[in-house]
C-alpha cells in the first residue's frame, strides 16, 4: 500500500504512533489517498494526538471535502471534540468557512448539542 494510503488509514484509525512513523518514513502530510482525501480530513476526530501530529507537520486545516464542502473543523465541531476543534483553530482553520449547505462549524456544534464547542467557536 502506498505511503499516502497508509497515512490516511492510520489517521482514520487514530493510531498516533503509526502516523508518526509514516511521516518520518516520508509520507506527505498533505498528500491525498485514492479517495482524494488528506489525512487530516479523514482522521479519527476524537484523536487529538493524531490531530496535533498532523498539524505540527504542516497539515492544511482548510481543505474542504470535495463532495460536501465540510472542513475538518466542521467535522470536529459536528462530533463535539473540543480538544481537536481548539487545535485546528490554533493551526489556522477558518471558523467562518461555510460548507456546501452554508453551515458554519458553530452551526453544526449547536445542531448536535455540543454547547462547549459552540461556546468556544462563538468566543473567537
Amino acid at each position: 500500500m502506498p505511503l499516502q494510503e497508509q497515512l490516511t488509514s492510520a489517521a482514520a484509525r487514530g493510531e498516533a504512533a503509526g502516523v508518526e512513523e509514516l511521516l518520518r518514513a516520508g509520507a506527505q502530510v498533505n498528500g491525498v489517498n485514492r479517495f482524494g482525501r488528506t489525512a487530516l480530513q479523514v482522521m479519527m476526530m476524537g484523536s487529538s494526538p493524531v490531530a496535533r501530529l498532523l498539524l505540527a507537520h504542516g497539515a492544511d486545516p482548510n481543505v474542504a471535502d470535495g463532495r460536501t464542502g465540510a472542513s475538518p473543523l466542521h467535522d470536529a465541531a459536528r462530533a463535539g471534540f473540543l480538544d481537536t476543534v481548539r487545535l485546528l483553530v490554533e493551526a489556522g482553520a477558518d471558523p467562518e468557512a461555510r460548507d456546501g449547505a452554508r453551515s458554519l462549524p458553530v452551526d453544526l456544534a449547536k445542531r448536535n448539542g455540543h454547547a462547549e464547542v459552540a461556546a468556544f467557536l462563538e468566543a473567537l
Binding site: F35, R37, V42, R67, D75, R78
Partner: peptide, 26 residues
C-alpha cells in the same frame, strides 16, 4: 455513501470510513 479512507481490511472484506452525503455525517 462516499468512502474517504480504508480503516480495516482482512479476511472477510473491507471496512471504510465514509461520508453520508445526505446528512454530512461519517
Amino acid at each position: 455513501y462516499e468512502p474517504v479512507a480504508e480503516i480495516g481490511g482482512g479476511a472477510y472484506g473491507t471496512v471504510y470510513k465514509a461520508r453520508d452525503t445526505e446528512s454530512g455525517k461519517f
